[in-house]
């Protein structure tokens, strides 16, 4: 019994990481209907940026966020302004194919620079600290921090979206681009800000991913898929739904892995497909006003 409780708890905690993968994806889809196929590779890119920062400056991974987050946000802004804005329009293909090409470029660029070797960020003592929260139930400090950060990120995005001028601009631009321009909003800038924000979240997710497990240049696409599954499970357009989706995916994988290690990923995908079959709008779709 306690064994299963532990398994589920671990699943919930990793679900926070998946929710962060998903939040950035969901954000830019919400604002500009762009699905970024390179999203997972950008997460991995963030992990490598963190690796360089920690190695050259001797910072610990969590402190490195102070540099990695702004760096990724700037990359996101530039990427949108210089490349992705050109792909937006009625046609579905350009954004899809351009981000697909970007995914290949990032993967192979990282491969060229860092080889295919597995890397990991060392966070020191926090990695091994665990606390007992019930008889036989243990929580690692690092997974706990990561989950708390995920909740904070989702809450902050929710606040930003519904309580700030930037969030208002995001929603207005998403509703009606040309009228948004009439309000004095430069939509190219608004989109670039959305991508900057998305990659800021990607940076946080990338650093936690890198502390938690090994990474190499090829693992991006699977992160994209986890994020995507969390978005669809949670319901399009809902930030808290994204967290729920991430947790459901994390728990499914943890239970699958407990049954048979080969079933970890499969269990997650199957839960996703089942939800797609019985409730294609997701569990917590945004109620349209």
């Amino acid at each position: 019994m306690t064994e299963w409780l532990n398994v589920i708890l671990q699943g919930v905690l990793i679900g926070g990481l998946y929710a962060m993968f998903a939040a950035g994806l969901s954000l830019i889809f919400g604002v500009m209907r762009l699905v970024n196929i390179a999203h997972g590779d950008l997460i991995v890119l963030a992990a490598y940026v963190a690796l360089m920062v920690t190695q050259t400056l001797g910072l610990d991974p969590l402190t490195s966020l102070l540099l990695v987050v702004p760096a990724m946000a700037i990359i996101g802004y530039a990427l949108q302004r210089l490349l992705l804005n050109r792909t937006l329009g009625d046609d579905l293909l350009p954004p899809l194919l351009v981000t697909f090409g970007l995914s290949i470029i990032i993967q192979n660029g990282l491969l060229e620079l860092f080889t295919a070797d597995s890397r990991k960020l060392q966070a020191g003592a926090v990695e091994t600290m665990t606390y007992q929260i019930g008889t036989g139930i243990w929580v690692g400090l690092l997974p706990f921090i990561q989950f708390a950060v995920a909740v904070a990120v989702i809450a902050a995005l929710q606040m930003l979206f519904y309580r700030t001028a930037l969030g208002r601009a995001f929603r207005a631009t998403s509703d009606d681009q040309s009228v948004a321009q009439l309000m004095g909003l430069d939509t190219r800038h608004v989109f670039a800000m959305a991508m900057a924000l998305s990659l800021a979240v990607v940076a946080i997710a990338g650093v936690f991913l890198a502390v938690r497990s090994n990474f190499d240049p090829a693992i991006g696409p699977a992160r994209l898929i986890f994020g995507f599954e969390a978005v669809i499970i949670g319901g399009l357009g809902s930030m808290w739904g994204t967290l729920a989706g991430g947790v459901i995916l994390g728990v499914s994988q943890a239970i699958g892995a407990q049954i048979d290690p080969g079933w970890q990923l499969l269990a997650g995908h199957i839960v996703f497909l089942v939800i797609l079959a019985v409730r294609p709008q997701g569990l917590f779709p945004k109620v349209s006003g």
Binding site: A165, R168, A169, R171, A172, S174, D175, D176, V179, A180, L182, M183, G184, L185, S288, G289
Partner: peptide, 26 residues
């Protein structure tokens, strides 16, 4: 400033937010 044909308020924004975003240009 243009009041567009068909009004075209932002459906995702509240009435007050629609007004506030009009003042966005500062």
């Amino acid at each position: 400033a243009l009041v567009p044909e068909g009004r075209r308020l932002f459906p995702s924004l509240s009435v007050e937010e629609n007004l506030r975003i009009g003042g966005q240009s500062g």
